[in-house]
Design a binder for these strands. Structure first.
Lengths: 155, 155
DNA sequence: TGGGTACATATGGGATACCATGGGAAATCA
DNA sequence: TGATTTCCCATGGTATCCCATATGTACCCA
């Protein structure tokens, strides 16, 4: 019901593992997905993660294209070929893969950010910067002024 | 449940064998297909591979043509005559055939790419190039802009 | 209200299982 | 019978499982 909310920062151990925040684990458990579904965010240096709800959202995008067509293949490679399915161990931890490390710049700490139907995996400092920027944009939008695009697409 | 997701690169041994990634093997086992179904991709230098789910998708496409018609025969030759059924040995390996080598340019390494209902077999460097391109096309397609065909026609 | 106990979570580390890979030997084919 | 394929086993590295500990928090009882 609640979805992923709030954010948490945890330490990466020597084996490259990190605890997924307990509240997020609870959401995942209710969602019923085996493990975790992870895909690079196309517009910021974070990785989107979630379960069936996120997967359904992603699958919806490719439904309009005919399978075996060049368009569908390209889309499927971008969506599924470039994503990962990390397992979650008995203690609620996941391992941060090469792909995630490369795309996020994570070294020894990980910030988990809830976005309701999914959550994001960030390098803590990069998240702080992005978050500050997002605040400004949100304020500008709410005050009715013209948005300040600055970077990519909206979240 | 998950289908073929993510991508993996494995080494080809002296006998021309390569390990099929364990997660893909698990999907194939669930699918129940004996061995592997392989067919050249019509629009890129990769080979499509999978089990019953892929086969069903291909058959669906040929249903649009009347059996015994020249069109159907031509299609049947293209789809089934040009395909192969490599076995999977006890250790989860397949041998890369002459056909696959020719069509993909594979020499000593193989990249397996999950596309949900099937996976593709690529020469690693070619995959990197194609994937970067696919990423751009996907963004264009999903943002509702005109797609960038760049290459060929649909199957 | 204060003290203490039980539980949950994050984290560390040893042991084990899995997996990709290499290579020998038997079997198959032409 | 020579070449190729299939089966089987060995090995090293990695990921997974399992248990231990610390820190905190909620709860309970006097």
């Amino acid at each position: 019901m609640a979805g992923f909310v709030s954010h948490f920062t945890n330490r990466l151990d020597a084996k490259g593992r990190v605890s997924i925040p307990a509240p997020f684990r609870a959401v995942l458990a209710r969602d019923g997905f085996e493990g975790l579904y992870c895909i690079k965010s196309s517009h910021c240096s974070a990785v989107d993660a979630g379960g069936n709800e996120l997967l359904a959202e992603i699958e919806k995008r490719s439904e309009n294209f005919i399978k075996l067509s060049p368009d569908h293949d390209a889309l499927a490679i971008a969506l599924f070929g470039e994503s990962e399915n990390p397992k979650i161990d008995g203690d609620g931890r996941m391992t941060i893969s090469e792909m995630i490390r490369d795309h996020t710049g994570i070294t020894d700490q990980v910030t988990f950010v809830g976005l309701k139907y999914k959550f994001q995996i960030w390098e803590p400092e990069k998240f702080r910067e992005y978050s500050a920027e997002a605040q400004k944009r949100a304020l500008a939008m709410l005050s009715g002024q013209a948005p300040a695009p600055s970077q990519g697409e909206p979240v």
